[in-house]
Structure formats: C-alpha cells, structure tokens
Write a protein that binds this DNA or RNA. Structure first.
Lengths: 243, 243
DNA sequence: CGGAGGATTGATGCTGTTCAAGCGTAGTGG
DNA sequence: CCACTACGCTTGAACAGCATCAATCCTCCG
C-alpha cells in the first residue's frame, strides 16, 4: 500500500497472528497476542464479538462497567471530559489492548472508535469469577495493569515537565514502539486519530500540534503524509524524546 | 496541638485503628486499615518493619523491585527524574498506602521519606506466592491498583488541562479527602512536602505555587499556617477544583 | 461546483516561567 | 543571649512559550 493511498481514517489491520493459531487452523478473531495460547483458550469461550463504526462509543465514563474488552482491530480513543468541555485523552487502544482490566464498578474513561473497530467483550462478573479460578491468569492480567500504570506515570512526566516539541516527538516514538509490537509499520506511522485528539492527549492545542509537526517536517525529522507520518531522522527524534 | 506549633516536617501520626485490633489487644503497627482483618492476618506474618529518617530513600526508580511496601506512619514522595534534572512527583504515599503493588520486576518510581517514616516490607516473590494462594486477596489488591490507575488519569487531566489555580485547589481538596480517610484533620492540612515537591507534582514552578497559595490566602480561601494550610472557604475551593 | 470538516499558518496576547532580590525561621556557635 | 548562616518561602519585574483569535487551504464527497 503506497503511503499516498492511506485512507484518512486508516484501518488498523488485524495482525496475521490473530487469525490463525499454531497449527494453521483459522480461529475466530479474538484475543491479544500478548497472552499465551493456554490463557487465550481459557478466556475465549467467554467472549462475544463487538463491532463499532467510526465515532461510535464503546462506553462512557462513570457508566456501570459490566464488561471488559480486548481490541482485535481498529483503534479507540480513551478520554475524560470536564464539565466545561476541556478534554484529556488519556490514551489510545490498539489491537491486543485490554480495556477495563482494573475491573472497577464504573469505567474510568469514555471510549470511542477512531475508525471501524472490532473487539471481544467479556461479561465482567464472569470474567472476574474465571480469574479467581485461575490465579496465574489473574497475575498476568495484574501485571498488564501494572504496565499501564507505569505508562500512566510516563504520561504524567510528559504532561507536567516536557515542552511541546518533546511531547510530540515522544508521542511519535511511543506510537512507533507500539506499532512494532502489533506488526504495523514503525516507519510510516498511521495516525488514526486527528490533530485535536493528539492535542488533547498531549495537553496542547491543535494549532501547536500542527505547527510542531510542520516544523519537524521542515527540519527533515519526519515527513507528513496523508493519514500519517513517516519517521525520517530517527536519531534526532530519539534525542528530542530524551528519556 | 495548636496550628502554630506544627513542626516543619510534621509527623504524620499513626491512626489509632492501626495500633489495636478488634479486641483491644495491642498489635505490631503494620497493615493498612483499608484491608479487612482477615486479609491483614494473612499478610502480616510475612512483613518486616522498616524505618526511614527524613530524606532517606526507600528505593530508586528502575532498581530491581524485590519488595512491596505498606506505609504505616509518615509520608513519602514518589517521583521520576529526567536526565537533565526535570522532576515529576507522581504522588505522595501516606499511612495505609501500598507501594509497588503492581509487582513488576523494577520500581516505576523513586521513593523517599518526607519525614520519619515506618513501613511494612514484604519480600516480593513470597508476597506473590501468597496472592496466588488467595485469589480473593489478589483480587482486592488488584482493585486497589485499579483505583491508583484511575487517580493517575485524574492526574493526567490535572496536568494537561487545568490552570495553576485549579491545580493547587484540586491538590488541596485531594489531600483533604485522603486525610479524612486516614484520620488526619481535613480542616488544617499538614503539608509534609515542601513547595518544590508540590510544584513538581502539579507541573508548575515553586514560584507559581507560592504565589497561588498566597493569593488563595489573601482571597480568604485558605489560611497559610506554619507547616500546613487551613481550609477556610470550602465552597470556593470546591468550585475551583471543579470536577 | 459547492460545502463541510480537518489542517495549516499568521498575528497577538496571556499565563506561567525565569531571573533576581529579600524575608522569616530554625539551628549553630561564639 | 545574640550574631550568623542556611534553607525554604515569598515577592517583583521581564520574558517566552504556548494559547487564542482569525483567515486560508486542502481534500473529500455529495
């Protein structure tokens, strides 16, 4: 697929590993590749498929959380909104990601689709019950939650202490890392989210995001392409996102 | 204790409920009141006491995490530092709080004492093993982690989308809520952390924090007292922290 | 062709930072 | 008991980075 034909709301494809298990037998598109096969087999019978179109919402903040989700294809934005309309996008969910893993009574964020999305839905109480019977699985999911918490702390550092340039560079490098893991191109990054979503994620305005990307482009760090961004000067980006 | 005699590095007292169990028998100061007695009794045998003096560090970011902690008295700051010295204080730990609950291989933050601190230390692998044998307990601790994650998202909203005034007001109201739960005065808040810690927590500079507190004082919202702050105009503070 | 929505770019202004000086209190030693 | 220092906090003045306001462009689509 040429970079010039990326759709505007790009479709995050289903990585091939999700479509077949070890012996090449097709299986229902379903659970995270991050999970060992045995655990997938434990969880899968409990799941139901969900599909969303662009802009449809999966759930809203503070709604009773009767489900847990695992994204199979597409991408979602997760966010909170203040009474006066200010929004913070706390993150984006990609194939393989769980949503609602902390199993609280209510959802901590709202979630809606950036494009067509499919996911596995689990009934929360059944999910919980299953975990209680499989301490190993619960421990694994607890670990995944711990990693999310660690990333949340990265995010605090990003929001509290970094400049606009660093924020944007860090965002791009973070996306690259995630794309590597789910089998998407880490060179030409699809950006299924709009500039406003990025801005609300990084604690900036849409204008600042746009200007910063333009400058990175002019400086030869990146190349802005329809529907995404091509990473050019990897080193410079790495230095900007200075860990 | 008069508000004018608050020590500069105030001692966060041990809530009485930690000192005695149901039948009035004294017990070793130890575990969180947030935990049911049965769970406390399960965990306690595994624990070792730790004491820290002011400014001593409990552990550093990225160190191998061989322990899990539960604070019994005092307060700690949890933070990350960038190579160039910029710091983000991700939170503060008070009596009852667990640290390192996500059980990852390495600590996600550094932790050091704001004043004299005591805590329970658990050997991580033993702790982990115990949890695998007590799914109910594991589920409970998972839930606590989920709440921490939810607060991390509040923090993202705070850092990304709120003004300096709102940040400071929200910080104070948040402290009030926590102090209520651990039995400290929610009217005259002790501030065991310095202005710089608050600044690095809220993504501001020390000058902005100082100015903002001064203005809140002048406006009659709060009263700055040695070692802390007295909340005066509760309503106005609530409106400023506008949830 | 015309409209809608997102993205870009420019001009201006404000919020919070930076730099700098001064204050207050605790602790120390003469 | 009082200087003297150290340290954290406060306050002021000037500055800068990002926000705001506004206009234009681009692409997709009907």
């Amino acid at each position: 697929m040429s970079i010039h034909s990326l759709p505007v709301g790009p479709r995050i494809p289903i990585p091939p590993s999700f479509l077949f298990d070890g012996i090449g037998k097709p299986r229902l598109v379903s659970l995270s590749a991050a999970l060992p096969l045995a655990e997938r087999d434990t969880l899968e019978p409990l799941s139901r498929r969900v599909s969303l179109d662009q802009k449809e919402t999966l759930f809203g903040q503070d709604e009773p959380a009767c489900s847990v989700f695992n994204v199979t294809s597409g991408a979602l934005r997760l966010y909170r909104i203040l009474p006066d309309g200010r929004r913070q996008v706390t993150g984006f969910a990609f194939p393989g990601d769980f949503i609602g893993l902390s199993l609280l009574d209510r959802f901590a964020v709202s979630a809606d689709a950036l494009g067509p999305v499919t996911a596995c839905r689990f009934e929360r109480l059944a999910f919980r019950r299953l975990l209680c019977e499989n301490p190993g699985l619960m421990m694994h999911l607890h670990e995944i939650t711990g990693q999310e918490l660690s990333r949340a702390k990265d995010m605090m550092m990003l929001l509290g202490r970094r400049t606009a340039d660093e924020k944007v560079a860090t965002f791009l490098m973070g996306l690259r890392d995630r794309y590597v893991r789910i089998g998407l191109s880490p060179i030409t990054l699809e950006l299924p989210m709009g500039r406003l979503d990025i801005a609300d994620h990084l604690g900036l305005t849409i204008e600042t995001v746009s200007r910063t990307l333009s400058r990175l482009d002019k400086d030869g760090c990146i190349l802005i392409v329809p529907g995404g961004v091509r990473l050019v000067d990897h080193n410079r980006l790495d230095r900007m996102s200075a860990h």
